[in-house]
Design a protein around this nucleic acid. Sequence first.
RNA 1: GGGCCGUUGGCGCAGCCCGGUAGCGCAGUACCAUGACACGGUAAAGGUCACAGGUUCAAGUCCUGUACGGCCCACCA
Length: 866
Amino acid sequence: MGNAQHPHAKKPVAVPEKASLDGLDGRVRERWESADVFAFKKPTDGREVFSIDTPPPTVSGNLHAGSAFGFTHQDAIARYQRMAGRAVFFPIGWDDNGLPTERRVENYYGVRCDPSLAFDPGFTPPEKPDPKRKVAVSRPNFIALCEELTGEDEKVFEELYRRLGISVDWNFVYTTIGEHARRTSQYAFLQNLARGEAYQSEAPTAWDVSFQTAVAQAEFEEREVDGAYHTLAFTLTGTDEVIKVDTTRPELLPACVALIAHPDDERYKPLFGKTVKTPVFGAEVKICAHKDASPEKGTGIAMCCTFGDSTDVVWWRELNLPIKAVMGRDGRFVEDAPEDFDASAQTAYAQMATKTVFSAREALVGMLRESGQLLGDPRPIKHPVKFYEKGDRPLEIVTSSQWYIRNGGRDAPLRDTLLERGKELQWHPAFMRVRYEDWVTGLNGDWLISRQRFFGVSIPLWYRVDDDGEVLRDEVLVPNDDALPIDPSTDVPDGYDESQRGKPGGFVGDPDIMDTWATSSLTPQIAARWMDDKALFDLLFPMSLRPQGPEIIRTWLFDTLLRAHFEHGSLPWQHAYMNGWVLDPDRKKMSKSKGNVITPMGYVDDFGADAFRYWACCASPGTDTAFSVEQIKAGRRLATKILNASKLVLGYSAETEVDLDQVTEYVDRIELARLDAVIEKATASFEKFNYARALEATEQYFWDFCNVYLELTKVRAYGAEGTQPQATQSARVTARYIIDTVVRLFAPHLPFATEEVWGWSHNNLIAEESWPVASGLSVGEAGAAANTAHRVVADVLAKLRGEKSRAQLSMKHGVESLVICADEASLRVLQEAESDLKDAGVIQAVEYVPAEQMELKITLAAADAG
RNA sequence: GGGCCGUUGGCGCAGCCCGGUAGCGCAGUACCAUGACACGGUAAAGGUCACAGGUUCAAGUCCUGUACGGCCCACCA
């Protein structure tokens, strides 16, 4: 077996004069690309399919070290799987859909999207973008510009991924804004709608006032911000009794609809059911009991305003409170005061109307001080406030009509089913599942998927307009499947024509787009061509592996799992692999705001792709890793060493055949037995997606092989005078076999150097080679015994070297005599290795003495005789 | 507030699942041009495995707790 796996590929050895990494990356890459080796081929021989649901990188901006890091891990896994004989489907997509692209396009071209405009086929962007006066364009025009700009970025990114040696199939490139992804996304949404998994609802939702869009729970981010407790004096109706209420958001006082305390709170028990008058506005509100009020916070009684936070929403809903909306979608207080305000309350409110949160608060605090209803001074605190992760102003809660997909957030049986799915999925590392479970368990509402933005996949719906011109949100007009993708702002529903848009008796298009995750959650369906190639999809789905970062478990992973559950009634993949974080060299998380973001390509230029990949592959799955130039340099040294050791071994002889029957020498057999153990360990590690353990095992073996085995057998392998031809052949065959094997073991991690070396003696590509299997030809030496024997020999060699080192002599300095005292088993091993030891140590005579403990008596040759 | 992960020589990490003499790489020390490699080689030095208990003949490894670091989740009064 062994070499018999690839007999056809051998060619006469051709080793270069000087082995160097210079120019190697480009040369190797050229060979892969011209052969299109990473193209997915449908298996015709019954081999297994291994399909990878690759994360589509966001194209805006530079390639981040974290992205290169994660992709290297995936690539090592993909390359292993390919070598292990599986038909690997490793597609690539670009995530160009979404807000980051939108903002860049606005600035780059000087345009802004106005979805009410009609498509202008002749539109060209302004020659000189004017940031102050952006030209309004229709959504189709805007999307065309987004596609144009991202198309440029994608070319740059493709080049970077190719240079890193990421072995994706470039024939399967998709973009999340491309026609195919839009079609898939809209179709999947319509399926959800048809099955009742998608629905619309008018409800209070988190709202980003800068971007003026609704935001989903998965996009929240908590930030510690400065705030202050204000103690407000409410008055119990019909009495002078003052009730103190602490709040950090006094400006929401006009929206106050109740005071809430805990039902068991003795202080407030007698007050439940009574009413109070709010300060300044004098509005009469109830005092209610609810378990979510916490007696410890502030004065133990809270204002419920519509709406300050999600607790307010819960109270409002569960206690059937009225609504007093004061917050506008632009983050300013609305013009009109709540309806029930009397004249003086109206006057007071007028001082806040149209103001921002900050100014309105100032105005109200002024009024409270004047009326004496602000007790004491505000007490500054730091507290967590929810933000949209891409936003810079706190989220507000406003009522609007939005589309949702059910996700178990308000449906316990569905939630339990999704938790079960999480258990079915095999997580690597396993502890990452807990994050999924935390998220699913903590969901407090369905998935809000509509966004009031432009560059994304349109919600593929229209609504009927009645004869009075009112939009009937409940009368949804759905496109035909074969019309997808559609843009309802320019396309027209069946039975209508464009002239009826927005007219009584006509229709309007839904102006919104879907959450970017509503499309990204379909990457398995998009990449595997669910819509277009059913046979291919059935072959690839459920996919084998989803590799990704842990920070998007709550979005990408969860959403993908949810969509697959609804659509296919299955998991989208068997395995999920989470990579760790790349930290800066001081072990701090990289972030743009800290300015410590590292871009990797400079290092790839300086040290080669293999060197960078080595660093990435040293990090265990799921483990955070500090960026380390030292480690990259170590990778470069390893790559160089592989070239040089291979050059030595392949230089012994130009023979093409490697016949393990010719391995006759004990030292050689030991080495082969040890190699078998390494192959087994590397294989087992890779089968568990642990490229790092595989690399470690191979690397450790390889350095030892260079330092001990190659040094021991060099003289014999050269065929020096007095060496038996058979012994020479044994060494050559062994070394050659080991190099051919080790190079393949390294190929997933260091594809460039190993491809180069492979090419010195093979016609095919190592990327298409088979993964090594154990030779089993270690001739009766079990792995452990071989290791013991190896250690005995290596130990003697090390002691000899130590003696010379201490004497400050060259390793080539002669040894007149060597007396070895050791136990009988060790002596037997050493006698077998005697001629190699004599060659490696330049020893004239060896004597063996049985003893309890190993001890050497070394007599170095006289200095001048060296 | 709940949870997860980590804490091993100066630095970066492995070992822990399945307990049995503490390992790797880098840096640092001394030395070495020998026909693959100075982007090299050799050797020596360096750790009571965060802390406190427990289980055991035996604990870096298993159990309990504590501290510190990082992350995830949680209703912003």
